[in-house]
């Protein structure tokens, strides 16, 4: 079975502010802001650069932050993707 490939919604208008490793993301479409830690912020930025399945996204995010690719990182990415889908920020990429 093909792995699910994720991407940032093409119409998402995202604006960022960062202070001391903490990020506030403003999603203009919904009018909501999200207070993110560095891991989540890095993952979303990676997803913005290129669509990825959850394993690839875990690897790219972990390598960016010099973290091990372990179950904690994988779970973090899975949860983040589910959340981003509910928020309308990420979608399953059209195949």
């Amino acid at each position: 079975m093909r792995k699910t490939v994720w991407c940032v919604a093409s119409d998402a208008r995202l604006h960022w502010r960062e202070w001391d490793g903490e990020v506030v993301l403003f999603h203009e479409n919904s009018g909501n802001i999200h207070h993110l830690n560095l891991f989540a912020a890095t993952a979303i930025r990676q997803l913005l650069e290129a669509p990825a399945d959850s394993e690839t996204l875990t690897e790219r995010t972990a390598s960016k932050l010099d973290l091990p690719v372990d179950d904690e990182a994988r779970d973090g990415i899975e949860q983040l993707l589910t959340r981003l889908k509910t928020l309308g920020i990420a979608r399953v990429a059209p195949s």
Binding site: R13, H15, R17, E18, W19, D20, E22, V23, G31
Partner: peptide, 29 residues
Amino acid sequence: FSRAATLSRLVGNAFNFTVLGRPAFECLS
């Protein structure tokens, strides 16, 4: 107090953040 958390709280205390949208985000940042 963390600046990111401050921004988050200010947004939570705004009556019309979503009415103004992006200008409100820029202004509070």
